[in-house]
Every structure is written in C-alpha cells, then in structure tokens.
Nucleic acid binder design. Structure first.
Lengths: 341, 341
DNA sequence: ATGCCGCGGGGGAGCGCTCCCATAGTCGCA
DNA sequence: TGCGACTATGGGAGCGCTCCCCCGCGGCAT
C-alpha cells in the first residue's frame, strides 16, 4: 500500500504539501497540487482515514440509529441520509437497535462513544436525557428524525396539520361520518405521532361543525394487518357505517382498503379511504394520501449536521425546519354516495 | 476524555499492561486485570478505535453494500448482518449503491479502500472481477449474499430446488395447469435467480409428466404491481385459465392474489397461488410460500467473514453453505376445483 | 547448581497522517 | 529601499494506541 511518503517522493514535495494538496486545507501552488494529484493517482493512493482521524480527531463518519430496518419510513430516511452523507464524503455507520435494551447500552457505551462517529442521527428513537448529555459532552451533534427527543433538534412533519389536511380533504368531498384508525396509546409513549394525528383529525371535524364520534375511532398498530382488523370493526355493521376512513398511515389504510373489499364494499363508492405517508404501495392501491418525504428528511438531517460539523461550508438557507407534505389525491377517495349524504 | 495513560496511572500499571488487560491479548495477572478494569470503568475509558486501528491495521468494521434499502429481502439481510456484527464487536458501514455507476466508483475507490473496513458483504450486487481483485489485493475478505459473484464465496438458496419445491406442492395438490410469474431477462443479467427459479418450475413439471406451456409464463418485475399485472394476463380469459400460479417472489404472488380477487376469482378455490420468500405480508394474505431466511443469511455471512478475520475464534462448524428453506402452507393453495380437474 | 521455559510486566518505537512553526520568496506600498 | 503581509513549502512533533523486545522471577528437569 502506498503511503503519503511515497506520494511525496514521487511528486517531489514534502508530506506536508501532499496533505495540504489532497485535503484542500492551506496554501498549495497549482503546480504542486497537480503534481501531487498525478502522483496520488498513479500510486492509487487514498488517505488512511484512521491515521487522518487520529491526527484530526474527526472521523468523517456519522452513526445512524434506527429501531427498525424493514419498515418503509425508516429505510427511506436511511437511504436519504446515506446518499447525502456520501455526497459530503462521509460514511454512515448503522446501528439497528431492535427492541431490547441490552444492545442499546452496548451501542451507546462502546460504539458511539468510541470516537467512531462525529455525529448521530436518531430515527424515531427515544433517546434518554442522559444519553443526549453524554453525546453533548463529547461534542457530538445529534439530530432526531420522526420523533421528538428532549433537548435535541428534531425533524418531523407537523402531524396535526397533516392529519387535518387529510381530514379536510374528506370533509371537502362532503363526508361527515369520517372514522379514524390511529395508533394505540402504548406506542405513543415514544412518539406523539398517533396523538397528534388524532388531534388534527378531531380539530378538522370540529372546525367543520362535526362532533367527533368516539365510536368512529379504532386503535391499531401501524401495519396492514392492524388497519385491516380495525377497518373490519369500523365497517362491520351497515348501521352507522362511516362513509370515509382516515388512517394514520398508509399501511393501515391499505389494510382498510382490503377490509372494505372483503366486506364487499367498493372503494371509493361505498367508503373513501385516505392515509398518510405515500408508501411505495400506495400508488398501486390508488390510495389518496398525504405524502411526507422521508428520503428528504434523511437528507435534511445530514445537512443540519454538516452545518455544525463543517461550519466553513456554505452558510446555506436559514434552516427552515418546516417539513414539506403534500396531499396526493388518487382513486380511493370520492364524494359520498347519495344514500350516505 | 480519558486516555490509556490515565487508566495506566490510576491502575498503577504501564500502558502496555492496560492494553493487554483490555484487549485480552498477552499475559496479564488476574489482579492487574481487575485493577485495570476498575480504573477504566471509573474513568469511563473506551479505547479509541482510530488509534487502535492505526496501530493494528484492523478496523473492526465491515462494509455492507446494497442496491436497495427498502426492499424486504435486503433490509432483512442487513438487519441480520448488523446484529451478528454487533455481537462480534464490529461496526457496520452501509453503502447504498442506488443504481447509477457514479456513486459506485466513488464507493469502491474512496471508501472501501480507504482502510475503513476489514471486509465487505455485497448483497445481491454485481461486483466486477476488477473490484473483487482490488479487494483481494488489499487482503479484504468479501462475501456475497443472494447473487453469485465471480470468484467470491456467496450465500444463496438453491433457487432451482426452492422453485421445484413450490411447484411440487402445487402438483401434489393435483394441479396440472400451473402458471409461472418470473423475472424478466434484463434483471437476470445480474442474478441468475429468475432463470433458476423458472428452471426448477419446469423441471418439477416435467418430472410429473406435465409439459411446460410457454403461454403459462409471464414476466414481471419483482413487485406487487408487477405480479398483479402479470396475473391479470394469465387469469384474464376463462379459457385455458391456469388452476394455480407459482410466483417467483411473494410480492409478485401478493399482486397475483389481488389480481385474482379483482377478477372475481376466489383464492384458493378458483386459483391457488404460491410464492417464495415468506415476506412480512405473506401471513396476512394467507400466502403459501417457501420461506427463505434472509435474516439468517446476513448473520451467516458475518460468521463466514469472522472465520477469516479472526481465525483464533472457535473453529465453528465446517461451513455448510446449504441455506435452509421451508415450505409454509397457508390458505392460498388448495386442491383444484372439480371443473378444473 | 545450572539452564530453560513460561509468565507477568515495562519501555518505547512506530502505525500514517495533520498541522504548528519556521523559513524563504514575492509583492505592494510608503 | 525597507518593511509588513502574504504565499508556498518543509521539518517534525504528536494523535492514542499496540506490540515487539527486554527483564525478572519462579518452577522444574537436568
């Protein structure tokens, strides 16, 4: 393996100049720079990140901590973060904290603190104040995505507004009996997402002069099966059947569409269904939804970290934290049928 | 931040002893080891992986290269690999090569070779011989999962056998007109998976004395939408309609189930459907499938790397490369209806 | 007794960079 | 012409470990 000395020798300069030429820090004449680059290329030289990190104290590596890997939201955020990091020349070290607390302790004690990473992105993960404090003491920035973390800059869509938008879409179509499939409370201990989406739903109804009907709420976990189960209850009996369902996630909404079909109901003729996410499968199911853009959220998280990690970089826009969302109307929502109106 | 010197001072020993005590290499008396551990704990000392890597030349970090993050197979393998690596005290650096070749070159030239990783796991990714050679020259082991790579130890299920098993299940139920939804050829340039599964399907038919009917094959990409589209063609007209469909993946199979429903056909009464994977959603859809276990495949890949990276470790079983698979019969397959038989 | 071996432990070189400091040259302006 | 400011470059300490080499000691066979 070629080292910096080999490059220096070949280029006829000192190692200091090689370092400067390749890193862009400090002054190097154009000629010297060209010679160094040619030599480096010829030798197939790549700086040793270890040696570089040791000397600088920076690793150009960020740790990403996720609770799940195989769910759409998480993998999308991860993908966005990865690509953004790559553009900045950073590596991404992945920590998948699947549930149990044992791994978690190891990751925090041994890995994150091992000077392996310069910063941390926590995706929808509860991080204790103590953990945040430790990272802070080490001078490692942390940003959260998709779940509020005490004392940490966090990226998340305005769940209340998103739910409101979805509900208003249904109200605008003329629906009045609108059910909601939301997360159960246990889940809410970590994120306020289910609560917030329910609040947005209720607020939209009230603004339209519709009193929320507790019998039109069904709790479920954020899966197709959960949404299916909940929708069967909601749509099960013809009397008092809602004309529309707003589900807190697309996976739930897809479950609801399938449940409606199972009951012989036509979507959207007999029941309109909307979700939140714009999941991969939503287009296939013609699901009307409010898109959030987890891919961009991951990228945004990286930008925020870069502002702190590399203050020298372009100042960038003044960090607008309002995350975009967008109603995507497809075929699963329509005006209620005449008998319902 | 406490360094090794601080620990040495507090424990009243030399840094060499601290290093030995903490790494387990070399001889240290029990007493000294206890003192060192106590001191390290008291100071919250964690070895700097950079300094350690620089001195040893080993990073305890493996690079995982994946083409997609948000597909069930990939994220499952990734999860399995991550957990296995964590158990071995290794980190996982993720490289998501989404399509284009530009990123790819950067990753190989700058990142993987940057002495950042000790080994590489390539998931269903075509790796050129040149790339393999470079890694080999650097002494970095590489193992593939889910796609054959020239000259590299690769983990993948026996696609022919799996397809055969699925097809034989249908044959055993009495089906004779069995259609197949498989990958298209373009996709096959990378992996031989679609071809192999088709071969297994045809072999099973021939062994049962059924001549494969080319009109009962439909190409699709490996998605729900792809399977749906293909199944609509296959099941579209009542004449010559197959009594069963074997899809090369569960996502395709689920698309086929939905297509059957759209056509007013009952699964399994009018048509049986089986897939391959045991995808998360398969249970919900009652899909009969041949489970492969990507999570374990990821873990297995790690074990193989560890055998090379840490020869000192337990010798382990003699590396049986036969990967497990298992038929899971659910409600989507049954004997063909009387009119079909 | 003597030599040898194995174990426990210390000193310190060296891993491959970065960056501080020093030096030399160049330019512009008083 | 002189001086400060700035650019270009080299020398070399030091980042925080690991591990080679060395020493000392006790036990054991010769």
């Amino acid at each position: 393996m070629a080292g910096i000395d080999d490059v220096a020798k070949l280029a006829g300069v000192s190692t200091a100049t090689v370092s400067r030429a390749l890193s862009g820090r400090g002054h190097v004449s154009a000629g010297a720079k060209a010679k160094v680059e040619a030599a480096a290329h010829e030798l197939g030289y790549v700086v040793s990140s270890n040696a570089s990190s040791l000397a600088t104290g920076r690793t150009r590596n960020v740790g990403v901590v996720v609770p799940f890997l195989n769910r759409w939201f998480f993998s999308s955020v991860l993908e966005g973060a990865q690509q953004a990091l790559l553009r900045h020349g950073y590596d991404l070290t992945l920590y998948n904290l699947a549930g149990d607390g044992a791994e978690r302790g190891i990751v925090f004690d041994e890995f994150l603190l091992r000077k392996r990473v310069d910063a941390v992105i926590a995706i929808s993960l509860e991080v204790s104040e103590g953990e945040v404090a430790r990272l802070h003491d080490l001078g490692k920035p942390i940003v959260g995505v998709g779940g509020p973390i005490e004392g940490v800059r966090t990226l998340l869509i305005d769940d209340v507004a998103v739910a409101r938008l979805a509900t208003e879409h249904l109200l605008g179509l003329g629906h009045r009996r609108i059910a909601h499939i939301g997360g159960d409370l246990e889940f809410d201990l970590d994120f306020h997402l289910p609560t917030n989406r329910r609040l947005g739903y209720e607020a939209a109804l009230q603004d339209a002069g519709v009193e929320p009907d507790p019998t039109l709420f069904a709790a479920a976990d954020f899966t197709v099966a959960g949404g299916h189960h909940a929708a069967l209850q909601l749509l099960g009996s013809p009397r008092n059947r809602p004309t529309a369902i707003f589900a807190a996630s697309d996976e739930m909404a897809i479950g609801a569409i399938l449940a409606a079909r199972d009951l012989g109901l036509n979507v959207p003729r007999d029941v309109s269904i909307v979700g939140i996410d714009d999941h991969d499968l939503s287009e296939f199911f013609g699901l009307t939804t409010v898109a959030q853009f987890p891919h961009r959220q991951g990228a945004r998280a990286v930008e925020i970290l870069m502002e702190q990690l590399e203050p020298a970089a372009e100042a960038g826009p003044p960090t607008a934290t309002a995350l975009p969302y967008e109603l995507r109307v497809r075929s699963s929502s329509a005006r209620p049928g005449p008998d319902a109106a």
